[in-house]
Amino acid sequence: MILKERPVPIQLLQREALLRRLDTRFYRYKEIEKDLINWKTGYAGEKNTDYYLSYLPEEEFGIINDLRLKNQNTFQMDTILLSLMFGLVLEIKNIVGTLFFDQHTQSVTRIYKDIEEGITNPLIQARRHRNQLLHWMINHRLPPIPLEYLVVISRNSTILKTNPGNEHIFKNIIYAECLEEKINQLAAKYQTPVLKSKSYNKLTQLLLAEHIPSYPEILKMYGIGRTEIVPGVQCPTCKRIPMLRVSATWFCPSCKAYSKDAHFPAVRDYFLLLNEKMTLKQFQEFLLIEKRGVAKGLLHTLHLQVSGSGRTTQYYLPPDCILSPLNENDRKKGDFH
Rank of each mutant, 00 (worst) to 15 (best):
Ile124Trp: 02
Lys291Glu: 11
Leu133Met: 11
Ile183Arg: 01
Ile224Asp: 07
Asp66Ile: 05
Val194Phe: 08
Asp102His: 06
Pro216Leu: 11
Ile124Arg: 05
Asn275Tyr: 08
Ile159Val: 15
Phe75Ala: 10
Thr204Gln: 14
Pro7Asn: 03
Met137Pro: 03
Asp114Gln: 06
Gly310Cys: 02
His129Ala: 07
Lys220Trp: 04
Arg155Ile: 04
His263Trp: 14
Lys40Asn: 11
Leu304Glu: 03
Leu69Phe: 09
Leu133Thr: 09
Asn184Lys: 15
His211Thr: 06
Thr41Pro: 04
Phe336Ala: 15
Asp78Trp: 10
Ile2Asp: 09
Leu274Trp: 10
Ser214Asp: 15
Lys256Glu: 14
Tyr190Phe: 14
Leu219Thr: 12
Asp114Met: 02
Gln76Met: 02
Lys93Tyr: 01
Glu177Asp: 12
Asn172Pro: 06
Ile2Leu: 10
Asn94Ile: 06
Lys239Ala: 07
Leu179Tyr: 12
Pro242Trp: 05
Glu210Trp: 08
Cys178Thr: 06
Ile183Lys: 01
Lys93Val: 01
Ala295Asp: 05
Gly165Val: 07
Thr49Ala: 13
Leu82Pro: 05
Tyr112Trp: 11
Pro236Tyr: 09
Asn327Cys: 06
Leu3Val: 08
Leu12Ser: 06
Arg226Cys: 04
Ala266Asn: 07
Pro236Met: 09
Trp39Asp: 10
Tyr27Asp: 09
Leu288His: 10
Gly310Asp: 02
Tyr52Phe: 13
Leu147Ala: 00
Thr109Trp: 00
Asp261Ser: 12
Glu290Thr: 14
Tyr258Phe: 15
Leu317His: 08
Arg68Gln: 13
Pro144Trp: 02
His300Gln: 13
Cys255Asp: 06
Ala248Cys: 05
Ile153Val: 14
Ile153Tyr: 01
Leu304Pro: 04
Asp114Ala: 03
Lys161Ile: 00
Ile174Thr: 12
Glu33Phe: 03
Leu273Ile: 10
Asn166Asp: 04
Thr109Cys: 00
Pro242Cys: 05
Asn131Pro: 03
Thr162Tyr: 01
Glu91Ser: 13
Pro265His: 04
Thr204Asn: 12
Thr313Ile: 10
Tyr190Lys: 11
Ala44Arg: 14
Leu244Tyr: 04
Arg245Leu: 14
Lys30Pro: 00
Val230Ile: 15
Pro318Met: 05
Tyr315Ala: 03
Ile169Gln: 00
Pro146Asp: 04
Glu91Met: 13
Cys255Asn: 04
Gly225Pro: 00
Glu181Pro: 00
Gln125Thr: 08
Asp78Asn: 07
Glu167Met: 02
Ile289Thr: 09
Ser214Gly: 13
Ser54Gln: 12
Tyr270Lys: 02
Ile241Ser: 07
Leu298Phe: 11
Tyr270Arg: 02
Ser197Ile: 08
Val233His: 08
Lys332Met: 13
Ile95Val: 14
Asn131His: 10
Tyr29His: 08
Ile224Met: 06
Leu298Trp: 12
Leu133Ala: 07
Tyr27Ile: 11
Asn201Phe: 10
Pro122Thr: 00
Asn94His: 12
Lys161Ser: 00
Ser54Leu: 11
Ala126His: 07
Pro319Lys: 07
Gly42Asn: 11
Met1Val: 13
Asn163Phe: 00
Thr249Pro: 01
Lys47Phe: 03
